[in-house]
Amino acid sequence: SLEEAIRRAEEALRKGQTFEYAGIRVTTQEALEKFRKWAEKQK
Rank of each mutant, 00 (worst) to 15 (best):
S1A: 13
S1P: 12
S1Q: 12
S1H: 14
S1T: 12
S1M: 11
L2K: 02
L2G: 01
L2C: 10
L2H: 05
L2P: 05
L2Y: 10
E3M: 12
E3N: 10
E3D: 14
E3Q: 11
E3I: 11
E3R: 10
E3L: 10
E4G: 10
E4K: 08
E4Q: 10
A5T: 09
A5R: 04
A5Q: 09
I6L: 10
I6G: 01
I6D: 01
R7E: 10
R7D: 05
R7A: 12
R7F: 09
R8K: 11
R8A: 13
R8H: 11
R8P: 00
R8I: 07
A9R: 00
A9L: 04
A9P: 00
A9Q: 00
E10A: 09
E10F: 06
E10K: 06
E10M: 08
E11Y: 01
E11L: 04
E11G: 05
E11Q: 07
E11R: 06
A12D: 03
A12F: 08
A12S: 09
A12G: 03
A12P: 00
A12N: 05
A12L: 07
L13C: 04
L13W: 05
L13S: 01
L13E: 00
R14P: 01
R14T: 09
R14V: 09
R14A: 15
R14E: 12
R14M: 11
R14F: 07
R14Q: 12
R14N: 10
K15M: 14
K15T: 12
K15A: 13
K15W: 08
K15F: 09
K15Y: 08
G16A: 03
G16T: 02
Q17P: 03
Q17I: 13
Q17R: 09
Q17K: 11
T18M: 12
T18V: 15
T18Q: 09
T18I: 15
T18K: 09
T18Y: 15
F19R: 00
F19P: 02
F19L: 02
F19Q: 00
E20W: 06
E20I: 10
E20M: 05
E20P: 00
Y21R: 02
Y21T: 03
A22R: 08
A22Q: 13
A22H: 15
A22L: 13
A22F: 10
G23F: 03
G23I: 01
I24Y: 08
I24A: 02
I24N: 04
I24K: 04
I24M: 10
R25W: 11
R25Q: 14
R25G: 05
R25A: 12
R25F: 14
R25I: 15
V26K: 00
V26S: 01
V26I: 15
V26T: 01
V26Y: 08
T27H: 10
T27F: 04
T27N: 14
T27R: 08
T27I: 07
T27L: 06
T27D: 15
T28P: 02
T28Q: 02
T28E: 03
T28H: 04
Q29S: 09
Q29V: 13
Q29T: 11
Q29G: 07
Q29A: 13
E30T: 07
E30N: 07
E30S: 09
A31G: 14
A31R: 03
A31W: 06
A31F: 05
A31V: 07
L32F: 10
L32I: 04
L32M: 07
L32N: 00
L32G: 00
E33A: 08
E33M: 07
E33L: 06
E33V: 08
E33N: 08
K34W: 15
K34D: 14
K34A: 15
K34I: 13
F35M: 06
F35V: 02
F35E: 00
F35D: 01
F35K: 00
R36A: 06
R36S: 03
R36F: 07
K37P: 00
K37T: 08
K37G: 07
W38C: 12
W38M: 05
W38Y: 05
W38D: 02
W38A: 03
W38H: 03
W38R: 02
A39P: 00
A39F: 08
A39I: 13
E40A: 07
E40M: 07
E40L: 06
E40R: 05
E40W: 05
E40T: 06
K41N: 13
K41G: 14
K41M: 14
K41E: 15
K41Q: 15
K41P: 03
Q42Y: 10
Q42V: 14
K43F: 15
K43R: 10
K43P: 09
K43T: 12
